[in-house]
């Protein structure tokens, strides 16, 4: 189901930056309100949002937020841990935003976004911003709008942005290319040593948390994860800490926050860490470029002559030949300068 909405992007941008304030509303609340509306624009119309993000009122702002991803199995306790980590970070005087992604229905687009219910402690704290997002068909554990949302939220100066992914299995590792620190939340019985040998997000996290340690003995899980982790931390490489937590008994939380800070220091202090950050930024540029290209590609494909489509359908022509022709032609046009900048 879709509804139409109107927005004045100039006012919205100047409200986000705080240059103008909604009438009868506190200045900070006004900025938060505008941010919320802008995030909806981002989720629903990424093209308009791309232009909006370049608005002069926003371009003068910058973000220095530390982005922490929390990913893991459904029910591992990501939301509850997020809630507790928000509390710890607030005690350290840090402002925190949370982006909580939950799955959308592929049939209707509808969703029940239920992560926020675990974060009731912080609803009225003006230095905590919580936003739920539907995954809207994206399969990487986050939504397409997540990157842009981090950017926008960061413009309000939050110190930390916690991104809680959809409950994931093994291969949904997009968060690794988004977050500065990715935390994988597991449970004492999440699997044996063979599970932990598998490729995917299990090999990529920066911090491992075995949560719900009050429910069963985590020792085997912890020692297997630590063996994996120590094998990764050769030389100056980061050795991902493996932590035991219990959200119910509030254990291991200080260690968790400490690990997040240590990882930030590592990225800052070591050339290896800075190289990782640089690679992540390059990935972000590439992802955005692919997003722009995808729309151009769809336009090109819509213009392929029926005869050619029919030939592919009849098995007479490989789809790769058509694709290659389209690419060659488009590339030639770009080189001749026929596609103008900002043609969108």
């Amino acid at each position: 189901m879709l509804v139409r909405r109107s927005l004045d992007l100039n006012s919205l941008a100047s409200q986000i930056s705080g240059d103008t304030v909604l009438e009868g509303v506190e200045p900070w609340a006004s900025r938060v309100r505008a941010l919320s509306k802008a995030l909806s624009l981002l989720e629903n119309d990424p093209w308009l949002a791309t232009r909006f993000l370049q608005h002069p009122a926003l371009a003068k702002l910058s973000t220095n937020a530390r982005v922490v991803g929390l990913t893991g199995l459904p029910g591992a306790g990501k939301s509850t841990l997020t809630n507790l980590i928000v509390g710890r970070l607030r005690k350290l005087g840090k402002s925190v935003a949370v982006l909580a992604v939950d799955p959308s229905s592929t049939d209707t687009g509808g969703a029940v976004l239920g992560d926020r219910i675990r974060m009731q402690d912080h609803f009225c704290d003006p230095q905590v911003y919580i936003r739920s997002m539907g995954s809207r068909g994206a399969l990487g554990g986050v939504s397409r709008a997540t990157r842009g949302a981090i950017r926008l939220i960061g413009l309000l100066g939050y110190d930390y942005i916690l991104v809680e992914t959809v409950g994931i299995g093994q291969s949904e590792s997009e968060i690794v290319s988004i977050a500065d620190t990715t935390t994988l939340v597991l449970m004492p019985n999440s699997g044996d040593d063979i599970q932990l040998m598998k490729a995917g997000v299990l090999q990529m996290a920066d911090v491992y948390v075995v949560n719900k340690c009050d429910l069963s003995n985590p020792q085997r899980m912890l020692s297997e994860l630590r063996a994996n982790s120590e094998a990764r931390g050769r030389g100056n490489e980061w050795t991902p800490p493996v932590l035991a937590t219990s959200a119910a008994e509030q254990q291991g939380l200080d260690e968790f926050v400490d690990a997040l800070q240590k990882h930030a220091e590592y990225e800052h202090d070591h050339p290896e860490g800075r190289a990782i950050k640089r690679k992540r930024v390059q990935t972000e540029i590439a992802t955005n470029l692919l997003f722009i290209l995808e729309r151009e590609v769809q336009k090109m494909v819509a213009q392929v002559p029926d005869a050619e489509v029919n030939a592919v359908q009849a098995g007479q022509l490989p789809a790769m030949v058509v694709a290659n022709r389209l690419f060659t032609e488009a590339f030639a046009m770009v080189q001749q300068g026929k596609i103008e900048k900002n043609s969108t």
Binding site: R5, D45, H55
Partner: peptide, 17 residues
């Protein structure tokens, strides 16, 4: 680049929340 942008009032479709 930003100077060429024309943005003001826009309408868009959204999934209701």
């Amino acid at each position: 680049m930003t100077s060429t942008l024309k943005i003001g009032d826009v309408t868009f479709s959204k999934i209701p929340r």
